[in-house]
Design a binder for these strands. Structure first.
Lengths: 143, 143
DNA sequence: GCTTGACCCTATAGTAACTTCAGGATGTGC
DNA sequence: GCACATCCTGAAGTTACTATAGGGTCAAGC
C-alpha cells in the first residue's frame, strides 16, 4: 500500500501522513526499490487511531501518550482514563469561555442597531470603552 | 511612558507591544535619545482597543479592518456591524463543534469506568474502532 | 522507444499570534 | 563604580499542518 492509498483510507492528505512519520507518531515503513513508502495493515490501524484522536481535538502530545501506553502496556489504564478526563475538562472550559465571549459579542452588537457614521458607531465605542481584561494564557489548546 | 509601563496598563507583555508595532497594529512611537520607545495617551487607547478585540478572539485581520475604519472614517458603520455579525457566527459555530466533540468524548469515557489492563481499556478500543471522520478544514479561526 | 500524466520523493518556507532566547545597551539606587 | 531592572534588536521556537520547488518513478498509449 502506497502513501496515497493510505491517506485515502485514513481520510487525510499524503503530506499529513509524511508529517506524522517525521513527528514519530506513525512508524516509518519499509521502502520499495524506488524509495516509495510501502505500508501494511498495522499502519492503517495506527493512522486511523491517530486521526480519530485528532478528530477529538487531542494534541500530538496527548496522542503520543496514548500510543506509548499501547506500545508498552503496563499496569492498568488509569492514566488513559485520566488523560481523557483532562481532555474533557479542556473542552468544557473552552465551551464556557466561548459562551461568555458570545454574550459579550452579542451585547456589543446591540450597541449599534442602525447604520451610523463611524464616529457614532456604538460598537467601536464599546470596544474602546471595555475594561481591558487580563487574557489568561490559554489553559486549553483548543483555541 | 516607556514600553514596560504601557504593557502594564494594557495588561500584556512588552514583547506583545513590540510585536503589534512590527505588525503595524500599533503605530511606532517617538524614541528617546537612548532609543527607548516613548508612548503617549493615544497609544494607550489604541493598545487597549486592540487588546479588547483580542479578548473577544478577533484575528489581527479583523482588528486591522476595524482600525482602518477608525483611522479613515468614511460612510456609515455597516461594515463594522457586518464584521461583528460574522465574528459572532464564527464563535457560535465553534461552540456547536465543541459541544458535539464533548458528547463524543463523554461517551468514549463511559466505555472504561474501572481500571483495566491496557489491552482491555474500553477507551483505547473505542478510539481504534471509531469511524474515521473527515476533518473539515476549520471554517473559523477559533481553534 | 517516447511521451504524458498520475503519483512518489526531499527539503524548505509559510500560517497565527505570539513567546523565548541570545547578546548587548541604558538608567537608577547605593 | 557596581548591581539590577529595564530597554534594544534579531532570530528562532511553538502547533499541526499546508504549500511550494525541484525532481524521480511508473503504467498506458502511440
Amino acid at each position: 500500500m502506497k502513501v496515497g492509498e493510505l491517506a485515502q483510507v485514513a481520510r487525510c492528505t499524503v503530506e499529513t501522513v509524511r508529517y506524522y512519520e517525521k513527528e514519530g507518531l506513525l512508524p516509518a515503513p519499509e521502502r520499495t526499490a524506488a524509495n516509495y513508502r510501502r505500508y501494511v495493515q498495522a499502519h492503517v490501524d495506527r493512522l486511523r487511531f491517530i486521526r480519530n484522536c485528532r478528530a477529538l481535538d487531542m494534541t500530538h502530545a496527548e496522542i503520543r501518550a496514548l500510543l506509548e501506553r499501547i506500545d508498552h502496556p503496563a499496569g492498568d489504564c488509569r492514566a488513559i482514563n485520566d488523560l481523557l478526563d483532562q481532555h474533557i475538562e479542556h473542552v468544557e472550559a473552552r465551551i464556557g469561555e466561548l459562551r461568555q465571549l458570545q454574550d459579550q459579542l452579542v451585547s456589543l452588537r446591540q450597541r449599534c442597531r442602525n447604520e451610523r457614521p463611524i464616529d457614532a458607531c456604538g460598537i467601536l465605542q464599546g470596544l474602546a470603552a471595555m475594561e481591558t481584561e487580563v487574557r489568561p494564557p490559554r489553559p486549553s489548546h483548543l483555541g
